[in-house]
Measured scan of single mutants.
Amino acid sequence: PKDEAKKKVKEAIKRGDEETAKRIAKKYNLDWDDAKREADEER
């Protein structure tokens, strides 16, 4: 599900692992900028 994928993307971003985050986002066709902004807001 997309929500689960987005959570994984945000967790990867918070760990500083943007490569993984981008790969997950691409795989699930998520909006990378959107997920990154959300992760930054939660930090």
Rank of each mutant, 00 (worst) to 15 (best):
30 L>R: 00
3 D>S: 12
39 A>L: 10
5 A>E: 04
38 E>K: 03
15 R>T: 04
19 E>I: 10
13 I>L: 14
33 D>S: 07
29 N>K: 08
27 K>D: 10
6 K>I: 14
7 K>I: 11
4 E>K: 10
3 D>H: 11
5 A>H: 07
4 E>R: 12
27 K>I: 12
17 D>T: 01
25 A>S: 04
17 D>Y: 05
35 A>R: 02
34 D>N: 10
34 D>R: 07
36 K>Q: 08
31 D>G: 03
11 E>A: 11
17 D>Q: 04
10 K>P: 01
23 R>T: 08
14 K>N: 10
32 W>R: 00
11 E>G: 03
1 P>F: 14
14 K>I: 13
34 D>K: 09
30 L>A: 01
1 P>C: 15
38 E>A: 08
28 Y>S: 05
19 E>D: 10
36 K>L: 14
18 E>P: 06
8 K>R: 14
29 N>C: 15
15 R>G: 04
16 G>V: 02
7 K>S: 09
1 P>Q: 14
40 D>I: 10
39 A>T: 06
25 A>F: 01
41 E>R: 10
37 R>E: 06
8 K>N: 06
12 A>L: 15
13 I>R: 02
10 K>G: 04
23 R>W: 10
37 R>F: 07
18 E>K: 04
10 K>W: 13
7 K>W: 13
4 E>C: 14
43 R>P: 10
4 E>W: 15
32 W>K: 00
16 G>T: 01
16 G>F: 03
33 D>V: 08
26 K>Y: 10
2 K>W: 13
43 R>M: 15
16 G>E: 02
10 K>V: 14
32 W>Y: 15
43 R>V: 13
12 A>Q: 02
21 A>Q: 00
2 K>G: 09
8 K>Y: 12
10 K>Y: 14
16 G>L: 02
9 V>S: 01
4 E>P: 04
18 E>Y: 15
8 K>Q: 13
32 W>F: 14
23 R>F: 09
17 D>P: 01
41 E>L: 13
29 N>M: 07
4 E>Q: 11
9 V>G: 00
22 K>T: 03
26 K>Q: 12
28 Y>R: 02
22 K>F: 07
39 A>D: 05
8 K>A: 14
30 L>F: 03
29 N>Y: 04
33 D>H: 07
33 D>Y: 09
31 D>T: 04
40 D>K: 06
7 K>G: 04
39 A>E: 04
26 K>N: 07
41 E>S: 11
40 D>G: 08
26 K>L: 13
5 A>D: 02
28 Y>Q: 01
1 P>V: 14
11 E>N: 07
34 D>I: 11
5 A>G: 08
18 E>I: 15
24 I>A: 01
23 R>I: 10
3 D>C: 13
23 R>E: 11
18 E>M: 15
14 K>G: 07
26 K>H: 09
35 A>T: 11
26 K>T: 08
24 I>N: 00
36 K>I: 13
6 K>P: 02
9 V>N: 01
20 T>W: 10
14 K>A: 12
39 A>S: 08
11 E>I: 04
33 D>Q: 09
18 E>T: 11
16 G>M: 03
34 D>L: 11
9 V>I: 14
5 A>L: 08
19 E>Q: 09
42 E>F: 06
38 E>H: 04
3 D>A: 13
20 T>L: 15
33 D>M: 10
23 R>V: 09
2 K>D: 11
17 D>W: 07
41 E>H: 09
3 D>K: 08
25 A>Y: 02
41 E>W: 10
36 K>N: 05
20 T>A: 12
20 T>S: 07
32 W>G: 01
35 A>Y: 09
